[in-house]
């Protein structure tokens, strides 16, 4: 749907947000520097305690679209997940998450493999996968950039931030840039409404992102790849 855009007043917001980047421009702050701990994304290789095993990062940095489901530590995590639900089917969402973490997206083949593992039909798993927005149904770039344009961000210029990401990555909404680095999408409220515009890039939130921050943020992401 085409949308008229207008710069609504972004306001003279004086503070800086303690999240990553915020409007500080310091995009390479580590989690420890921001919050004093190194919790995020650092889950033990074996998934830790079974009660924690159903959580995951979004995707591995180097996705392995043809990696087997599941081997080594991933197998260990999958087995732990199975112990936490009274029915095998309860493990479906975490198992799909685990598959996506490894492969980067959920292909029809992945759905069939997960279905087989949990004793479900392929059609059933496809039905569930298609219901949830976080399962990528096709491959995405190295960085999945999701920009919130819902009301609170929108009031402060979310539409313009989305436009800026599209412009500076040279890609269309939902498509991946030619260098394979960036996929830009619009996302529904990320629950960071006080820190507009909220942008999620892979597992990380970037908050208070303004149009002017976009080029530097993208440069930072490019530099991570080297």
């Amino acid at each position: 749907m085409s949308r008229p855009t207008r710069s609504s007043s972004s306001g003279d917001i004086p503070f800086r947000n303690p999240g990553w980047a915020g409007n500080t421009g310091e995009f390479d702050l580590s989690e420890a520097e921001v919050r004093g701990t190194e919790y995020v994304g650092r889950i033990p290789a074996d998934g830790g305690h079974p009660g924690a095993s159903a959580t995951r990062p979004y995707m591995l940095e180097e996705k392995e679209p043809s990696a087997p489901l599941f081997e080594g530590p991933f197998r260990e995590r999958f087995e732990k997940i199975l112990t936490r639900y009274p029915e095998k089917q309860g493990a479906l969402l975490p198992a799909l998450g685990l598959a996506q973490e490894l492969r980067g997206h959920i292909s029809p083949e992945t759905m069939a493999e997960v279905a087989e593992m949990l004793g479900l039909s392929e059609a059933y798993v496809r039905g569930v996968t298609s219901f949830y927005t976080m399962y990528n149904k096709r491959p995405v770039g190295r960085f999945l950039i999701q920009v919130c344009t819902n009301i609170s961000c929108n009031l402060c210029g979310g539409d313009e931030v989305l436009e800026a990401f599209l412009e500076h990555t040279g890609t269309e909404l939902g498509e991946t840039s030619q260098d394979g680095l960036f996929t830009v999408m619009e996302v529904e409220c990320l629950a960071a409404c006080g820190f507009p515009t909220a942008v999620q890039i892979n597992s990380k939130y970037f908050e208070n992102v303004s149009v002017d921050d976009v080029p530097a943020l993208l440069d930072h992401l490019r530099s991570e790849v080297g």
Binding site: Y39, V40, G41, R42, I43, G48, H49, G51, A52, T55, R56, P57, Y58, G97, Y132, M134, V187, L190, A191, Q200, S203, K204, Y205
Partner: peptide, 25 residues
Amino acid sequence: CRGEFFEANQVLARAVEEAYAAGLA
């Protein structure tokens, strides 16, 4: 916990581990 909250999920996961280890869960 909401899927997009990768950070909150991990923070909670570590807290649950700590609670188990301390005999609180």
